[in-house]
Amino acid sequence: MEMTRRDIFALGAGLAAVGLINLPAEADEGMVKEAIEKFAGGMPSAGGVEIGAPEIAENGNTVPIEVAAAGATSILILAAGNPNPGVATFNFGKLAGESRASTRIRLARTQDVVAVAKMSDGSTAMARREVKVTIGGCGG
């Protein structure tokens, strides 16, 4: 019997359902909430943080991301659908030109990127943005 790609996919999904192969675990919203609260000391209100990201990332192994928040002393980046949500924390000193930084991140699948900012006056803010991923990037 010839195996079409559809058959192989269905077989894999079936095996995963039975637990015979391991799909990478996904961070649940509880882990994301915990990471946010640990950084911000509470749940920040939305707004005041920009996330620059492609709408569709062709390659989940390297997705360009930019974060900015006027007046922020640090910004935490989380990937809500990765096995672990933590990505990076940027800290801006007095000599930083603006509270803005870019990097490239790994996204395992289509998911929200979350950015949480801490300001010099102690207030916090956050934003969340979905990035669609065509080929996942967790090396599985």
Binding site: V87, A88, G93, L95
Partner: peptide, 15 residues
């Protein structure tokens, strides 16, 4: 000698 910017980095940052 003065820290201007720093980043703590996790495995989710790309190669």
């Amino acid at each position: 000698g003065e820290e201007a910017f720093s980043a703590t980095i996790e495995p989710a940052v790309a190669a």
